[in-house]
């Protein structure tokens, strides 16, 4: 909702690669906020709809590591011992985070993008640890012309977003974000890139409050540039 450009970029890249993209217009949320807050019944009511709508898709591609993890890792937990357990497992097996899909399912690392800038990559925790997806986004960045990737110290450290955590414990969340911004700033990069929009919202929120010149951008947006 906050970042339509990400979705648009993703669609453009996939179509450029010759795939037919469908967007389930009536799906807006995977149920993670309620799930993470402990309200699994409420979460199931939202997630159940997702299960049904995506039943017939060949593969489900998600632009955020966090939502990707929800579908891939947590749906089977959420629906364990319910009649939908099998459906949840089936959806899990065909769900991919965007960069994982490009690299590991389609075998593509060069999408013909060009982005002349010095960037640093922030690993969203869910994409990194729940999905084990560290190499794919970097492989894609390596395929972008005129782009220079500088790794920051503690690239794998959480930015402090964490969903409702950011609102329940803003002081901790902010401190974590400040540490992240400082690491990114130290690389001299113009852009902090990530494959997770929620991380970028956190980091961008802090950067603009600090008046920092560093900008954030989603991996898909870079890949859509030419």
């Amino acid at each position: 909702m906050m970042y339509p450009k990400v979705g648009i970029s993703m669609v453009r890249i996939l179509e450029r690669l010759g795939h037919k993209v469908e967007y389930p217009e009536d799906l807006v949320c995977c149920g993670q906020p309620a799930f993470n807050s402990g309200y699994w019944d409420e979460s199931r009511s939202v997630a159940g709809k997702v299960l049904g709508r995506l039943k017939d898709a060949e593969a489900v591609v998600i632009a955020s590591g966090s939502c990707g993890a929800m579908l891939r890792v947590f749906y089977p937990d959420l629906f364990a011992k319910t009649p939908q357990a099998q459906e949840a497992k089936a959806l899990s097996a065909k769900s991919y985070e965007f960069s994982d899909f490009l690299v590991n399912r389609l075998g593509v690392t060069d999408v013909g993008a060009r982005f002349p800038a010095r960037v640093t990559f922030h690993d969203g925790c869910h994409g990194l640890r729940e999905l084990g997806n560290k190499k794919a986004p970097r492989a894609l960045l390596a395929g972008v012309r005129d782009l220079e990737l500088v790794e920051m110290k503690d690239a794998e450290t959480c930015c402090g977003f964490g969903g409702t955590f950011a609102a329940k414990f803003p002081m901790i969340s902010t401190a974590m974000g400040e540490v992240k911004c400082a690491s990114a700033f130290a690389t001299g990069a113009e852009y902090i890139v990530s494959n997770d929009s929620s991380c970028l919202m956190q980091v961008q929120g802090l950067l603009s409050r600090q008046g920092s010149p560093v900008k954030t951008i989603h991996l898909a947006e870079i890949l859509a540039q030419s």
Binding site: G7, I8, V11, Y23, P170, G205, R209
Partner: peptide, 20 residues
């Protein structure tokens, strides 16, 4: 809780759905 230390992103003029 958010805005005391962070800026909020501005809502896009056109949503993904509208674009779609």
């Amino acid at each position: 809780a958010w805005t005391q230390s962070r800026d909020l992103p501005t809502l896009p003029a056109e949503s993904f759905k509208d674009w779609w």
